[in-house]
Amino acid sequence: MRWRRILLSRFFIVPAVLLLGTGAWNVYVDLHAHGLLEGSVIDAAGKPVAGATVILSVHDFVTQVEKARTRTDAAGRFRFDDNPSHLIQLQAQDGTEASPRVTIRLWFRGQDRVVTEPLRLAPNA
């Protein structure tokens, strides 16, 4: 009988729930943290742009370091598969035109994410 009282007491339930939650979250993170990042680049008129370079830079509190570059395919889509961070900025460049820096915040490092909002190129002001 004493064991039942302890099991139901607050001091057991709250830590148990916390540990369960952490464990479940860890499993979810492992399944979704391959660093995949996909998105698309369009020009001012909205047409996909092929061959544009997309720069991925990791944004730290103090510094900002460029980590990877890739080019868009024929359909204007680009794909990174080694995103190391949880706070990154994407910028597309094609000749003189460039898109504004888009900040993307993820829930954990390397979270797989498809960027729905395309990077829109604008003539370099």
């Binding site: 949880h86 915040r105 993820l106 829930w107 954990f108 490092r109």
Partner: peptide
Amino acid sequence: QLFNFVDVWYL
């Protein structure tokens, strides 16, 4: 938004 907690967790 709760992203501040994520930033702190990694820093």
